[in-house]
Amino acid sequence: MTGSKGAPLLQVRDLRVAFRRRGEPETVAVDGVSFDVAAGQVVGLVGESGCGKSVTSMAIMRLLPQRGVHITGSVKLDGEELLTLSDARMRERRGRDLSMVFQDPLSSLNPVIPIGLQITEVLRRHRGMDKEKAREAAVELLDRVGIPDPRRRITAYPHQLSGGMRQRVMIAIALACAPRLLIADEPTTALDVTIQAQILELLKEMVAETGAALIMITHDLGVVAGLCETVNVLYAGRIVERAQRHRLFGTPRHPYTHGLLRSIPRLDAPAGEALEAIPGSVVDNVPWTHACAFAPRCHRSVERCLEVTPAGETTGGRLLRCHNPVPASAE
């Protein structure tokens, strides 16, 4: 929770990830993304499918395949460049300094190995604990993430646990070495709302307790509203708006953020209020190279939007990539 204000914990600069396949034009999934995460800070990456939010996290974790993927830019953790790190050194840092919680715990846990062993593996590998010690630590971790009767559960296989329990195990594994940065990629999307509330609460507690920074990747604006200090909104591989959460939700300036907030049915909205849908779908975008990718779906688009790529401009702590933003005084 105490981070020095000087250098951020994680510094992502101009991250660009392109997928190349022979005989096809390259697909740019992430296109010049830059953001910082301070120690102990909770940062949100929000966007729809295909906006590049997951690819960003995979690139930071260095989990993308090396063939066919072209990554440029810089990702610095504690000042150390991760993108050029040797595989051996990266393995050492991954799991110890930065770790990740994935969307679907059933496919990210090993189905033929008891969960206890999957936790102790991390502890023995990174913290050099012996079998007995690691086992005790695993029991303690399971207890901390709220798994009842952890001493017995430790021998259970992933399929014997419910979805919520599995996600708790994933969080226990991710937090086993007290990492300084935790990336959670849609950690609650596969769960029911009541279980989602439990997991979000757990993540909040864990982050506060261990002082780890958290990057929360989700499509659910409601999830970030209650959790993240700073929110980045991604569209087609670029950050279109970034602001502190109260400002972003209070006065969304980018037409995409604005439209998204208006198009979701809300529990607290007056009855019978019509939804303002954003026309088209994500596939309708034009590449960022010579225009704004959101322009074809944008109700505020002007001629310039289809001719000049809008640059990201930061004013008063808000990053905005738009030629014709929603006026700040709207509503």
């Binding site: 709302v193 409601g222 209650g226 209070g250 529990l267």
Partner: peptide, 14 residues
């Protein structure tokens, strides 16, 4: 419980 568990995209309310 179900209603209170649903996240609302409004930080003030959250």
């Amino acid at each position: 419980a179900l209603l209170s568990a649903i996240p609302v995209p409004d930080p003030e309310l959250e």
